[in-house]
Structure formats: C-alpha cells, structure tokens
Measured scan of single mutants.
Amino acid sequence: MATGGRRGAAAAPLLVAVAALLLGAAGHLYPGEVCPGMDIRNNLTRLHELENCSVIEGHLQILLMFKTRPEDFRDLSFPKLIMITDYLLLFRVYGLESLKDLFPNLTVIRGSRLFFNYALVIFEMVHLKELGLYNLMNITRGSVRIEKNNELCYLATIDWSRILDSVEDNYIVLNKDDNEECGDICPGTAKGKTNCPATVINGQFVERCWTHSHCQKVCPTICKSHGCTAEGLCCHSECLGNCSQPDDPTKCVACRNFYLDGRCVETCPPPYYHFQDWRCVNFSFCQDLHHKCKNSRRQGCHQYVIHNNKCIPECPSGYTMNSSNLLCTPCLGPCPKVCHLLEGEKTIDSVTSAQELRGCTVINGSLIINIRGGNNLAAELEANLGLIEEISGYLKIRRSYALVSLSFFRKLRLIRGETLEIGNYSFYALDNQNLRQLWDWSKHNLTITQGKLFFHYNPKLCLSEIHKMEEVSGTKGRQERNDIALKTNGDQASCENELLKFSYIRTSFDKI
C-alpha cells in the first residue's frame, strides 16, 4: 500500500482533458527560462521544448504516446526543470519506465491550478516501474492521483506527508504495488545497510526511497516546507523545498512566496507586481503582455491589467481597466465587458449561442446573426445582446428569417469595421425574408467608422429604411451602385405612401 494514499474509496472516473512563447529569463536562482504550460502528445517531438525550461508557468501534460519505446527515452533528460506552477499529468506514455532521468531536479509542483483537485496525476502508464522524482520536495496545493499503472512499484516507500501538507485526498490505487509483488529495495538494503531515512506512518517504520538508488530526502521537522541542505541544516524561511546553503534567500532552489532578481522575498516591493503567484514583474512586463494579447485571437491570451499590486489576466467583477495605466478602477454604474472572439468572429444561430455573449459591452471581433427560429426570440436576444455598444469588426445579418427588427441591439452605437466582410463591408444584410426595420432612427444613433453597407434580398425592408441608415451611420456616399439592390429590397412591402385627393359631386333626387 502506498504510504499516505487512500484505498478502496469510491472515486469519480478520471477524465483526461485534452506555445513556446518565453516569458522571460528567471535569473540567477533558476538555471534556465520560464516556459508556458505545455500539452505534449502523440510523439516526442515537442518534448524537446523543455530543454531550457527551469519553470513551467502553467501545467505540463505528457500523454497518448503509443509508439514510443524505452530506448526512445534513454537520452532524454531535462535537468534544468525545477518547478511547475500548476500540475504534472502523465497518461498512456508507452515505453517510459521512470522519471528519474527525465526530470531529475523537479523540486516543486505548486498546484496553482489543479487537474480535478490533483497536482500530480500518473494514470495508465503501462510501462512505468517507478516514479523516480527523487528531488520532489513540495506539492504546495492539491493532491496526488496514481492509478492503474500495472508495473509501478516504489510507492509504499514514499512518505507523501513530507511532500504535501495533507495526504487525506491522495488516491493511489490499482498499481502493481497493490499486489505486494514489488519487493522494493532501498539503497544499501541488499548489503544489509540502512542508507535512507525511515519514518513512521500508520504504525509502520519504513525506509523512504524513490528507487533502488535514490533515497527520499527527509528534512528535520523544524525546517517545515522550506527544505534543508545535504547536511540537514534548514533553508531560509522564504525558500521552498530545498537550498544549497542554509538561511540564505539567494540560495533557495525555489521560493515559498515570490522570486525577485535572484532572491526569494515575502512580497513584491514597489515598483514590482505579483505575477502568477510566484514571481515579481515590473510595469513594462505587464504592459507588454497586455499589448501582445490586445489584437491576438490565441486562446488563453489575456490583456493583463494591474489590481491590488498584482498583474492579473482581467479586472475583477465591479472594476474596469483604465487604459492609460492598466489599473483596475471601480465602475460607475454597470461595468464594461470586452469579449474577445477566439477566431475573430462568432455566429449567433440560437439563443444558446447568444447567451455566451451575455453582459458583453464591447465585441472584439465580428458578429454573424443567422437565426431561423426560436421561442420568445426578441426578448431572449435583447437579454443577451442588448448591452453590446461596440463591435470592432463587422455585423452580418444573414438568412435570419425569424427577425423582424434589429432593435434587440438596443445599445449598439459603434461598428468600427477594423475587419470587413469580403474585404469591403462593415454591415452586411443578406436574404432576411421578414426583416422590416433596422432601428427606430428617431431614437437610435449608430456610427460606422469604416467599410460599406450591403443589402440584398431583404424583400420587406424598404429602401427608405436603408437610406436612413446611410445618413445616420455616416456611410452615405461610400456605397457603390450594386451594394444596395434596388429590386430585391422592399419588393414585397408597401414602401411608397402617396396622399390621394378626392373630389365629389353631391346629387339628390331633384338636383344634379
């Protein structure tokens, strides 16, 4: 039985969820670079991206490699990797027998973001014989899940209580170790020597080791999670996991709180800001991140802002960003909400898709409305799209047979046209069989910064309504002859009103 693990408890099935942008060198404390989270699957090609990484700022997932063999891993080693800020997950990587050479110096898994409450997941690794993470000293947050690894031993010899604050939620089941077939031998045991430290858990006094050649490092209890030197002297209180010299914040392997210019500090002093819960960055760093993602459509890219001495992905609820200094300031009234469309555009074809934009005031991208039916549609669209004030790209209304009016965009005031449909149009209306009105132009103002209007096959939309939009939106004169079809717009509506004058002759039985 794995020490510190839980057996036999019912657990939810383990679901495996399925960018080499360097964020800056980590400095003297770390020998390499800070790398983003990685999802490495199918083959070993991307694994080489770990070569210079000291910190993975995010998670590391290595999974679904069915053609790899043990010899493929023999020359692979990433000794610079010290810390993973989120979680480490391995799933069905064939041929991998140990992690001792792959990650010989991995010391800390912070667990800032977890995989279903777990910071370390080893699942269905069919050839893994031992973990071998002999320098792993601290899992700051989260638990361990090690399950269905039929060859995995050296679990009962690990004292997880020396690595985690609590072992109650560890789930370590259905491994070879369960069948008591392992016969784990710690260093020196074969020669009758006791080389590794022994600890007591559940009444068992057991030597602690990761492999037959690597003991588990056990520091004096007084050192807590700070770690200790090879001689057993406690590291500085700002260290986490390990250090090369005692009581020196510049000799830590990793930091308990924050890293700044080669030393570990309790908090980031001005003019620095907390970033990702582990390091200090200056304003320029946060500003660069903001600008890199301002026009990016890459998933996970955030326009970072500053709030409460932190550089964070977005302002919290009730705050909006001051564009001059990136500071989050309290909103006066309802907060603006910028919604970034991942692929640059979004099609609204149902109430469900409209709900995804609920509360958005600025759309960074283009909207395509293609709704053919739905219950209580006008009210639903207004509830979900009615706060949109600005669209950076274009607005396209296409084959939306259920629409009679666009009044559900009740606050839309600006279409920038930074991206144009077919390279020309910022407003595009095609084949809307029941569209009769755009907006009530006596109450609604709309500016279209650039781009043209396109109207074709809107049989109940009168040309007068379209011409009014040209005047109000500032697009009059931009359109070419064929942009607004004269014969297919309003051709099934009563669009022309003329005053009919009647004269009559009164007659009676005795007068003409």
Rank of each mutant, 00 (worst) to 15 (best):
S54A: 05
E147K: 00
N179Q: 11
L240G: 12
P187D: 11
S54N: 11
V108T: 13
N105R: 04
R263E: 06
P271Q: 07
G111P: 00
C264W: 01
P36Q: 08
Q204H: 02
S284D: 15
G183Y: 10
H307T: 03
C264L: 00
D277A: 05
C186Q: 02
G333I: 05
S225K: 12
S296Y: 12
D169Y: 15
S324G: 12
A198R: 14
K224Y: 13
N42D: 08
A190T: 11
D288V: 08
W160I: 03
G232I: 03
N117K: 07
L332A: 15
L131Q: 01
I84E: 00
I146S: 02
G188M: 03
Y154I: 05
L233K: 09
Q276S: 11
C239G: 01
P104I: 01
Y118Q: 15
T85E: 02
F123L: 08
L326T: 10
S237R: 12
C252P: 00
V305G: 09
C255Y: 01
T45I: 05
C328T: 04
G111T: 00
D86I: 01
K224Q: 10
D169E: 10
D165T: 05
P334G: 08
S296M: 12
S161E: 10
S143W: 13
V305T: 07
Y154K: 02
A198I: 06
P36V: 03
C255E: 00
T329C: 07
P104C: 01
M65I: 04
P336H: 13
H212S: 06
C182P: 05
P270G: 06
L89I: 14
S296I: 09
Y304A: 07
S161M: 12
R162N: 15
N149I: 00
V218R: 07
Q204S: 13
R41Q: 11
K67V: 14
L152G: 00
P316G: 01
Q303I: 06
N170F: 08
H236K: 02
D72A: 08
L60N: 00
E124G: 02
L88W: 01
D277H: 12
C335M: 05
D178P: 03
L240V: 06
D177T: 02
I185N: 14
C153F: 01
T157M: 04
M65T: 03
G227E: 02
C228A: 02
P249V: 03
Y273R: 07
L326Q: 12
Y118L: 06
Q287V: 14
P316N: 09
G188W: 15
N117W: 03
L90P: 00
S323G: 14
K191P: 09
S77F: 15
Y154A: 07
C186L: 08
E207Y: 04
P336I: 10
D178Q: 07
R113A: 01
P316Y: 04
Q303F: 10
W210L: 05
R263W: 06
S166F: 11
I122W: 00
E151F: 11
M38W: 02
T107M: 07
F205K: 11
G58S: 01
T140W: 06
M38L: 10
Y134H: 01
M137H: 06
D169H: 11
H226L: 09
C209A: 01
N42V: 09
D177C: 07
N257S: 06
G95M: 02
G111C: 02
C223M: 01
G241A: 14
M65C: 03
G227C: 05
R298T: 12
Y171W: 10
P246S: 04
I222G: 12
T140Q: 09
A119V: 03
G333A: 12
I56N: 01
G300K: 14
D39P: 00
C280G: 00
A254L: 10
L88T: 00
L88V: 12
T199A: 10
N322Y: 07
L50N: 01
D247Y: 13
E71Q: 06
L155W: 03
N282M: 07
L99W: 01
G241F: 02
S317E: 05
L152I: 05
F283P: 11
H291C: 15
N308T: 04
L29T: 12
S166P: 13
R297K: 07
E51L: 04
Y87A: 01
M38P: 01
Q216C: 04
C239V: 01
G183W: 06
D169F: 15
P197C: 10
I201V: 11
V108F: 02
V206Q: 15
N170C: 05
H302G: 14
V121E: 00
K67M: 12
R279G: 04
N117R: 06
I139D: 01
I201H: 15
R110K: 12
S324M: 12
F283N: 14
A190V: 12
F103P: 00
S143C: 09
A190K: 07
D248R: 04
V108N: 11
K193M: 13
I40P: 00
N42T: 11
Y30L: 06
L260T: 13
I312Q: 05
N175K: 08
C255S: 00
E49M: 13
I122Q: 00
H28R: 03
S161C: 14
E151A: 09
S98F: 02
D288F: 15
E181S: 11
D178K: 08
C186V: 01
S112Y: 10
K100M: 10
C252T: 04
I158D: 02
N117T: 08
L99D: 00
W210M: 05
G188N: 05
C215D: 10
K292S: 13
P336G: 06
T211R: 04
L164W: 04
L88M: 05
G227S: 08
G132S: 06
L152T: 02
R46Q: 05
E130T: 06
Y171H: 15
I172G: 01
R256T: 08
K67L: 06
E97Y: 06
D288T: 08
M38R: 02
N170T: 07
D165R: 09
C301R: 06
E97W: 14
F283I: 14
T140K: 12
P330R: 15
H226G: 15
M125L: 02
S317H: 04
G188L: 14
L164E: 04
K294Y: 01
S213P: 07
K80M: 08
D75T: 12
V55I: 12
N242S: 11
D101N: 09
K217H: 02
N43L: 07
Q204I: 02
V34P: 13
H307I: 14
A198T: 11
I109V: 08
M137C: 06
I146G: 01
L289Y: 11
E147S: 04
S143D: 14
L128A: 02
D288G: 05
P249T: 08
R110V: 07
G111E: 00
G192R: 13
L240R: 05
N257D: 03
V253A: 14
L136D: 01
I56V: 05
F258C: 07
M137D: 06
G333T: 06
N309V: 05
L152C: 15
I146P: 00
P334D: 04
K129M: 10
D39L: 05
E51I: 06
V305W: 09
T250F: 11
Y273T: 08
F275C: 03
M83S: 10
N105V: 08
F205Q: 03
N117D: 09
T140D: 13
R256M: 09
T157S: 07
L332C: 03
A190D: 14
H212G: 10
S77M: 04
F258P: 01
D288L: 09
H212D: 12
R141N: 15
K310G: 03
I163S: 01
C255M: 01
D178E: 13
E314I: 03
E314F: 01
G262M: 05
L155F: 07
D72V: 12
C215E: 10
R110L: 09
H59E: 13
